[in-house]
């Protein structure tokens, strides 16, 4: 299992497909968070938005990266499409981790904030939740589900808008609202944890749905 993870990671790193979404994420932070001197958690709310878009793009890029014929070989080798897909998701989330770190540090470096361990934890967890939802959207908009890239792009954009604009379609809007309030990190801890667990469940559901659809298409 770890061998497939290493192979996919090496292949993705060499392909540099991670670069456009990463640059978009950094550019979004530069525009939206630089010199923000408000509450740190409010800055992290913007990072959640940027992470959602970046991880969706990242997931589509990484899932689509593997050539369809190579994917068949990998599937036969592993004997289980769910494991292959789960490892692909692990690669996406692995790449999200340094971005989360950047998202945590950048507002602190460029603005003046009161920094507490609680704020940092809340920021990290909120971005991880956004990465999971972005990955879920990316999976469902990947070639495995939507073969035509134009339709997949439009669907992903629409899905991100729906997730951001409509409350309770996903936990992202409530998380952003939570970060924008004047609550302390301690007050946000429990609802944020619950919302993050919900994000993980949504990612798991997206994984199963993608696997089911992809297997049926083979």
């Amino acid at each position: 299992m770890s061998a497939l993870y290493r192979y996919l990671l090496a292949s993705v790193l060499l392909s540099q497909r991670y670069l456009p979404p990463t640059l978009i994420f950094l550019a979004a932070l530069a525009v939206g968070v630089t010199s923000d001197n408000g509450p740190l958690q409010a800055s992290y709310a913007f990072c959640v938005l940027a992470m959602l878009i970046c991880s969706t793009w990242l997931a589509v890029s990484i899932v689509n990266h593997e050539d369809p014929t190579q994917r068949k070989i990998t599937l036969v080798m592993m004997g289980d499409s769910l494991r292959v897909l789960a490892i692909t998701v692990a690669v996406v989330l692995t790449w999200s981790i340094p971005l989360i770190a950047v998202g945590l540090i950048y507002p602190i470096v460029t603005g003046e904030h009161v920094i507490t361990a609680g704020n940092l934890t809340v920021g990290a967890v909120a971005q991880l939740a956004a990465a999971m939802i972005g990955t879920a959207i990316g999976l469902l908009c990947s070639r495995l589900v939507i073969p035509r890239i134009g339709i997949a792009t439009l669907t992903a954009a629409a899905a991100i808008l729906v997730v951001l604009l409509i409350r309770w379609v996903s936990p992202i809007r409530p998380i952003m609202t939570l970060l924008s309030n004047d609550h302390t990190a301690t007050e946000d801890a429990v609802p944020l944890t619950l919302l993050t667990v919900l994000c993980a469940a949504i990612l798991a559901a997206a994984l199963l749905a993608t696997r089911g659809i992809a297997d049926r298409k083979e």
Binding site: L14, D67, T69, Q70, K72, I73, V76
Partner: peptide, 12 residues
């Protein structure tokens, strides 16, 4: 398994 066409775009 060996597929009929194997055209990898991998940089490896």
């Amino acid at each position: 398994y060996v597929p009929d066409v194997f055209a990898s775009h991998d940089r490896l």
